[in-house]
């Protein structure tokens, strides 16, 4: 029995998944988290720090870390990289002016050694607002097709209506499970 097998067995027992949710400020990270957890989203303030939620979903224990995206907080992101199974990158589909920033921030994350094994889910948020860029346009603009270091998926969603949130989370859990846990 190799070390990997032991690790897999240990993880399987807990079925615990650690998800790190990042993105530029105003992307809607906290709103996604709260909506997913069924909380009120009308009173959310810009995140000064971070939020952690532990939820049960499909027999998995999800630890979701939502870290503030303001410029002054981004240097702290790396403090949260350790033992991340999945990275959820949230994009503000209205924010055309900073799409370039958004692309660069994601690219530097993907070169991060401690995130090397993580699955990447890109949420193209705010799809409920007319005038939002489609997930297809964002995929192209952010050059996602060329990511070969990580398993990835982009999905349009709306934190306000809840559209596609479950689909996205289900995909990332499935992908992580197929890598980490021995399939039944």
């Amino acid at each position: 029995m190799g070390l990997l097998t032991i690790l897999k067995k240990m993880k399987q027992k807990e079925k615990e998944v650690r998800l790190l949710m990042l993105g530029l400020d105003n992307a809607g990270k906290t709103t996604i988290l709260k909506k997913f957890n069924g909380e009120d989203i009308d009173t959310i303030s810009p995140t000064l720090g971070f939020n952690i939620k532990t939820l049960e979903h499909r027999n998995f224990k999800l630890n979701i870390w939502d870290v503030g995206g303001q410029k002054s907080l981004r240097s702290y992101w790396r403090n949260y990289f350790e033992s991340t199974d999945g990275l959820i990158w949230v994009v503000d589909s209205l924010d055309r002016l900073r799409l370039q920033d958004c692309k660069q921030e994601l690219q530097s994350l993907l070169q991060e050694e401690r995130l090397a094994g993580a699955t990447l889910l890109v949420f193209a948020n705010k799809q409920d607002i007319s005038g939002a860029l489609t997930s297809e346009a964002i995929k192209e603009a952010m050059d996602l097709e060329n990511i070969q270091t990580h398993h990835w998926l982009i999905i349009g969603c709306s934190a306000v209506t809840g559209q596609n949130l479950l689909e996205g989370i289900d995909w990332i859990i499935d992908d992580i499970a197929s890598r980490i846990f021995t399939m039944d």
């Binding site: 209205l94 799409l99 370039q100 603009a141 050059d143 060329n146 070969q148």
Partner: peptide, 23 residues
């Protein structure tokens, strides 16, 4: 690989700058 594929960044930057929302 990543570097190789991020080269045509400048081309893109202009595209982003001009394509503000229609409203």
């Amino acid at each position: 690989k990543l570097f190789a594929k991020t080269l045509p960044e400048n081309v893109f930057q202009e595209k982003v700058e001009i394509s503000l929302t229609s409203c």
